[in-house]
Simulated scan of single mutants.
Amino acid sequence: MDDNTRAHAAERLLAAYDGGPIPPLTATYEGMALDDAYAVQQLQISALLERGRTIKGHKVGLTSAAMQKLLGVSEPDYGHLLDDFFYLEHTPIPSSRFLQARIEPEVAFVLKKPLQGPGVTVSEAISAVDYVLPALEIVDSRIENWKIGLFDTIADNASSAAVVLGSTPTPLADVDLRLMGAVMHKNGQVAGTGAGGAVLGSPINSLVWLANTVGARGVVLDAGHVILPGAVCAMVPVAAGDTVTATFAGLGSVTARFS
């Protein structure tokens, strides 16, 4: 893709929340590659920053073996978390903001100092974490019917849309993230279960991958930023009237309500 084609793809994605989902980019732009997809993502983020938005963190996607197999990939992807992505737990979230919303439980890292790769180690990542929080990530797709390939979801900011954070911080030393179990309830019914080990063996591994991957692109994970390392179980659709709660062993719970 040349620069004009990348810009056209970014403009179409930016317009999708007003005009509706668009066909898969990979079916529209022949020869789209990994660098093209991240460039399209970055063009959108740059445009939103020019409109006054700010970056508050990053998310990692495609961290489960099942999702990687589904899309035929061997590593995760990443996207940006912007300031207007964050909602308070129990406070109604307007479902009209989303096109095809789904939700998934994650443990969120909050950083106390910057992380800059490449070359970040597990020990350096651990020392950069201030605390962890229970979280629910709301994912959305601007691609019709979620018919996404790897490059589609990367260009679409890794399908990131919103996040609800719990309000009880836990020091990283107080919980074994690999063995941490989680249960997600939707409208009082169990909608999914999982454990931290589903995220690349440990959510810490996801944080290391992110720091090194974005670092190679000149990006620093800043102090105070929120990092979502990946879901511990499969996402489920949500709509107006739904209430979703994720409960994590050793971390507490977080609830999202949709109006």
Rank of each mutant, 00 (worst) to 15 (best):
G52W: 02
L111P: 02
T63Y: 01
R142S: 14
K147E: 13
S141N: 08
I126V: 10
G52Q: 05
P169V: 08
G119R: 05
W146V: 10
G57A: 12
L115R: 04
L49F: 11
S95L: 14
A108H: 00
I55M: 08
V73I: 15
L111E: 10
G57V: 10
S96Q: 10
P76A: 05
A128L: 08
Q116F: 07
P105R: 00
L81K: 09
A108W: 00
Y78H: 15
A173I: 10
S167Q: 14
V110S: 04
G61N: 08
A135I: 01
P94L: 00
T54Y: 01
E50A: 14
P76Q: 03
M67W: 03
L71A: 13
A128Y: 07
H58P: 09
R51T: 13
A65K: 15
P169A: 13
D156L: 05
I148N: 08
V120N: 04
K69L: 12
A162D: 01
V110M: 09
A66P: 14
L111C: 05
E124L: 07
E144G: 10
L136C: 02
D176Y: 02
S159T: 07
I103K: 11
S159R: 01
V139Q: 02
I93D: 02
G57Y: 09
S127M: 08
V107I: 12
D174Y: 08
S127D: 15
P171T: 14
E50D: 14
V60I: 09
P76Y: 04
I93E: 00
V139R: 06
L81C: 12
F109S: 05
Y131P: 01
L70Q: 14
N145V: 11
D84H: 14
F151E: 04
I143K: 06
T168D: 15
R53T: 12
N157R: 09
L62Q: 04
E106N: 03
T168N: 12
D130M: 09
Q100P: 05
H90P: 09
W146M: 13
T63E: 03
F98E: 08
T63I: 04
M67Q: 12
D83M: 13
N145W: 09
G61C: 04
I154D: 09
P105F: 05
G57C: 12
L150Q: 11
V129E: 04
K147F: 10
A125Y: 02
S160N: 15
V60S: 04
S95E: 15
L70G: 10
K56R: 13
V139Y: 03
T63K: 01
V110T: 12
P92A: 10
V132H: 02
E89D: 11
V122D: 14
K112F: 06
R53E: 15
E124Y: 06
A155I: 10
I154E: 09
G79N: 05
P92Y: 11
G117E: 05
Q68K: 15
P105V: 00
F85Q: 02
T170E: 07
L133Q: 01
S160P: 12
Q100C: 05
F98I: 08
V110H: 06
G72H: 11
K56E: 11
F151Q: 07
L99K: 06
T63G: 00
L150M: 11
